[in-house]
Amino acid sequence: MSMLNWRRDPDYEMRMTAKLIEIEQIKKETEQVRRENKRLAELNSRMDALLRHPDSYFSIPPETDCN
Rank of each mutant, 00 (worst) to 15 (best):
M1C: 04
S2M: 08
M3S: 04
N5Y: 07
N5Q: 11
N5W: 05
W6E: 01
W6A: 07
W6V: 05
R7V: 13
R7T: 11
R7Y: 05
R8C: 03
R8Y: 07
R8E: 06
P10Q: 02
P10I: 03
D11G: 12
D11S: 12
Y12R: 13
Y12D: 04
E13A: 11
M14F: 07
M14L: 15
M14K: 15
M14N: 11
M14G: 06
M14I: 12
M14A: 15
R15A: 10
M16A: 10
M16E: 11
M16H: 09
T17W: 01
T17Y: 03
A18M: 04
K19F: 05
K19V: 02
L20G: 00
L20A: 14
L20K: 15
I21F: 05
I21H: 06
E22I: 03
E22N: 06
I23Q: 05
I23C: 01
E24G: 00
E24Q: 12
E24K: 15
Q25P: 00
Q25W: 00
Q25N: 10
Q25C: 02
K27C: 05
K27Q: 13
E29S: 06
E29H: 05
T30D: 06
T30L: 02
T30Y: 06
T30M: 03
E31V: 05
Q32I: 02
V33P: 00
R34T: 03
R34Y: 01
R34K: 15
R34M: 07
R34P: 00
R35I: 10
R35F: 05
E36S: 07
E36H: 02
E36V: 10
N37Y: 04
N37E: 11
K38L: 13
K38P: 00
K38W: 09
K38H: 13
R39Q: 10
R39C: 02
R39M: 08
R39F: 01
L40R: 12
L40T: 02
L40D: 01
A41D: 10
A41Q: 12
E42Q: 13
E42V: 08
E42A: 13
E42Y: 07
L43M: 13
L43W: 02
N44Y: 08
N44L: 14
S45H: 11
D48P: 03
D48A: 11
A49L: 15
L50M: 15
L50K: 07
L51W: 07
L51V: 10
L51F: 10
R52V: 08
R52T: 11
H53C: 13
H53M: 14
H53I: 12
D55L: 08
D55V: 03
D55M: 04
Y57R: 14
Y57C: 09
F58R: 15
F58C: 09
F58S: 14
I60Q: 05
I60M: 11
P61A: 09
P61S: 08
P61T: 04
P62Y: 01
P62H: 03
E63P: 03
E63M: 10
E63Y: 00
T64F: 06
T64E: 13
T64H: 04
T64V: 14
T64Y: 04
T64D: 08
C66Y: 11
C66A: 13
C66H: 10
C66I: 13
N67H: 09
N67E: 05
